[in-house]
């Protein structure tokens, strides 16, 4: 049997959602951003809410998220996405509003905005990509960088006495009365991808139920920043990040 006999429409079992634009991703091979983008695009398509969804992109590698998912986007100043989302959702309560933020954006420069938006219980979705490093600027220490982890600004490894401790911001967020759903997921294998997709779909559904803020952390890889090839990066993440950032739901009500 020739391969051409197999490649036929009736044999198709998987395809790119049309909401993921036919654009070449600028992300490095092995980076988790592309997978999470695909999940969000699929959830929006499956829920049929393309015309009702507003995305808010951060400063960082995913600043260009608007080039890939075919919805209306706002691009926020560094760390301020939850403030934009707050106003957007309050002014257009019938819309699904989500922010997409990295760890530098959300857990460092934007800590005030994320804490207060979550504490007010804004009916928004927050997708938090935690790869424990600043990717866009070339691999500097992030608030979530692990102790001992080598980065461009911790060349001898992160030391608590010099740099403080990695911030478990999702655990803090889970304590806030305004949040209804707080979970930590990952996308390094098909099972994890399916779980993350379920979590993101639940978060989008929550945002129309006036239950408060839904917060989905995705522990992610940054091969370029970590300077580890993709396959080993997944292993490094499982061995080093998962023990400190354990996966699972922290809150669901």
């Amino acid at each position: 049997m020739d391969i051409k006999d197999i490649i036929k429409p009736e044999n198709k079992v998987y395809g790119r959602t049309p909401l993921l634009k036919d654009a070449i991703l600028h992300y490095c091979p092995g980076c988790s951003h592309g997978v999470v983008h695909k999940i969000i695009a699929e959830v929006i398509e499956e829920m049929g809410i393309q015309d009702k969804t507003i995305g808010i992109s951060p400063v960082g590698c995913s600043v260009f998220a608007y080039n890939y998912i075919d919805i209306d986007w706002q691009q926020a100043a560094h760390g301020r996405a939850p403030a934009l989302a707050t106003a957007t959702k309050r002014l257009m309560p019938d819309k699904y509003v989500f922010t997409y933020q990295g760890d530098g954006d959300l857990a460092s420069i934007g800590t005030a905005e994320i804490m207060h938006a979550c504490n007010r219980g804004e009916n928004i979705v927050v997708i938090f990509i935690n790869n424990a490093i600043y990717g866009m600027t070339g691999g500097q220490m992030a608030p979530t960088t692990l102790l001992g982890q080598v980065t461009a600004t911790t060349p001898y490894g992160r030391k608590a006495e010099l740099n403080g401790y990695p911030l478990k911001i999702t655990e803090l967020i889970a304590q806030l009365e305004g949040t209804c759903y707080v979970t930590r997921q990952s996308v390094q294998n098909p099972g994890a991808v399916r779980k993350t997709k379920k979590a993101i779909q639940k978060a989008f559904e929550n945002s129309m139920m006036k239950k408060g803020t839904s917060f989905v952390e995705v522990v992610s890889t940054c091969n370029s920043g970590w300077k580890i090839p993709p396959v080993q990066a997944n292993k490094w993440m499982e061995d080093n990040m998962f023990p400190f950032y354990p996966l699972g739901d922290m809150k669901d009500r």
Binding site: Q74, R80, A83, L84, A87, L91, A112, E113, H116
Partner: peptide, 19 residues
């Protein structure tokens, strides 16, 4: 809305203006 800071206020304005 009373925001948590002037920084948040102007960025809420940004979000609203986007709409």
């Amino acid at each position: 809305l009373q925001a948590e800071s002037e920084t948040a206020s102007i960025n809420m304005v940004y979000g609203g203006a986007c709409c």
